[in-house]
Structures are given as C-alpha cells and as structure tokens.
C-alpha cells in the first residue's frame, strides 16, 4: 500500500496539478510535414487533372498563327471566338460543311427520347421485379445483369439485322431503341434495388386499399422516388451523349450523333489541321456532360457508384 504513496509524488493534490503540463488541444501546425505532403500531393494531382481542360480552353481561344508559334500551355495573347463559331457552324466532315451543330441537334434528338424511354421501361420493370415478382422474373433479371458484361461487339450485328428487318436501321428511332436496350440492365438494377428498399408496408397498404399495378406505380412509387429518377437521368444523359460505338454503327452520316461527327471533323485527313477549331469542337461536345456533372454533384457520384455495379 505504501508503494502508492511513494510512486505518486507528483500528484500532491488538485492545486498542485493545475499548473502542471500541457493542457487543451494538442497544438497542430497548419504547415506540418504531413499537411505539406498531403495537400501538396493533392494539389499537384489536381493540376494534372485540370491541365487538359485548361489546354483545351486556351487552344480554342487562340488563332492558328499563335498556336504555331507558342506552346500549348501559354494563355492566348489575343482571344478569338472564331474557332468556336467555325466549329459550331462551318467545320467540315467529308462533304458536309455545316459544323457540329448538326451533330449537336442529332444528339439532342437521340438523347431525350432515349433517356425517357429507357427510364420509363426500366423503372416499371424494376418496380415489377421488386413488388410483383412472378415466376421466372428473377431468371430473366439475372440474364439481363449477366448480359451487361457481354462485349457489345458480340451483339452489334444481330441488332443490325433486326433493325433492318423492321426498317429502322440508320434512323434515329433505331438508335433510341438500341440505347434503351443497353441501358436496361443497369437502370433496372438501380430501380429494383431502390423499390426493394422502400417499406413493404406501404405497398401492402396500397393493395389493401384496392390500388392495382399501375395505380401503385403512379400514385405511390413514382412520387416517392424522385431522387433515383434524377440519378438515372444523370447516368443516361451522360452515357448516351458520350456514346460513340452505337452511333457509328446504327446511324448514317446525316444522323450521326455529336461524338461521331466530332471524331470525323478532328480526324479527317483532308485539309489543314485547325487545332483551335478542333479544340473548340471538342469542348462543345464535352460541354453537355460536363454541365450535368458540375450541376449534379453528389448525385453523379451516386449514379456512377450504381453504374459501376454493371461494369
């Protein structure tokens, strides 16, 4: 017992302790080695990620003589919007010289109906899978999800044949159907999981009240699932706008979406390369998904996290 007395001489009483040793928060230096390393790395990496965007913008604002003289990182000495005008309204792809605007409007005409159709189909489907499971439904669903991993190249040609048979090959409607088909696995999964996570009692109560399949969908499920619809819209708008493969396979030059037309403008072999016009055209094409991205913030992350499941 007396050990304790000897071993604790420092604690002579509350008064003695008051003036003893460090107190309060541990001092943290804003410029500690750890912070310098941490933020330094992050800033360097962030600059690396931003660099291409910056180069795109400054290049598109320079005239060709300046591009030939200077380096690609230097800001424009004389800002010109002419490349943007040219990219939009008079850049040439093959024989057409009416700029990217045609591709832009094609993409709009493709994206809007594709987004609506694919989400309508998938949400109803996900709802059926979550709440009205019938025999065999899960089997089809598994095939659908596994099918999402099949390389598109394997299914491209049979779809060409089908579309040709029904007379939609080369038309915008054909492409809309293709986008709806290939958007189905991920969207159905998204909606099915969302509807499954909604309280079962809600659905039961509505059934007891006599609501049917469509009644419950429109009056209960739809109003309660706005966030997931927004996620799906973000996912589909960026996905469909950025598509190249389906566009190039299932449309003709006059119905090419913007990405295909952009590639044709930039990579066309004829004529002198106009890098400023090319970069303006590239920014224009990337603008729609970028705007969606910056406006949607965290929902975009949620969308890709969900989309990631599909692979």
């Amino acid at each position: 017992m007396s050990d304790h007395v000897v071993s604790l001489p420092a604690i002579g009483g509350a008064g003695g302790l008051e003036a003893y040793g460090p107190s309060g928060p541990k001092p943290r230096h804003t410029f500690s080695r750890r912070n310098i390393f941490l933020y330094g790395t992050l800033i360097v990496v962030a600059l690396y990620y931003l660099l291409p965007l910056y180069v795109m913008v400054v290049t598109s604002l320079k005239g060709m003589p300046e591009i030939r003289l200077g380096n690609i990182f230097s800001p424009p000495m004389e800002i010109t919007f002419e490349p943007w005008v040219k990219a939009w309204s008079s850049a040439c792809t093959g024989l057409n010289c009416d700029g990217l605007s045609r591709g832009f409007w094609n993409s709009v005409r493709i994206t809007i109906p594709s987004v609506i159709l694919s989400i309508a189909l998938a949400s109803v489907n996900g709802y059926a899978l979550a709440n009205w499971r019938f025999k065999g439904a899960d089997t089809f669903f598994i095939i659908l999800i596994v099918g999402a991993f099949i390389p598109y190249q394997v299914m491209i040609y049979p779809i060409v044949i089908i579309l040709r048979e029904v007379g939609l090959y080369g038309s915008l409607s054909g492409l809309v159907i293709v986008h709806s088909i290939f958007g189905m696995p991920i969207l159905t999964l998204l909606f099915r999981n969302y509807f499954t996570s909604m309280p079962e009692e809600l659905f039961r109560a509505a059934r007891v009240d006599g609501a049917g399949f469509w009644g419950i969908y429109f009056r209960i499920m739809l109003p309660m699932s706005l966030p997931i619809f927004v996620v799906a819209i973000i996912l589909q708008v960026t996905g469909i706008w950025n598509d190249f493969l389906f566009g190039v396979v299932y449309t003709r030059p006059d119905t090419y979406p913007m990405t295909v037309q952009l590639n044709n403008i930039v990579n066309s072999v004829q004529g002198v390369k106009e890098y400023n016009v090319n970069m303006a055209a590239t920014i224009l094409t990337g603008l729609v998904p970028l705007i969606v991205y910056f406006l949607s913030g965290k929902l975009f992350v949620r969308g890709i996290a969900a989309g990631a499941v599909k692979g």
């Binding site: 071993s7 604790l8 604690i11 002579g12 009483g13």
Partner: peptide, 10 residues
Amino acid sequence: VNGSSGANGT
C-alpha cells in the same frame, strides 16, 4: 485527489 491519502492512488 487521493494521491496523498495513502489508501489508493489516483
């Protein structure tokens, strides 16, 4: 503060 009380240390 039992340090000096002897029975039990803090």
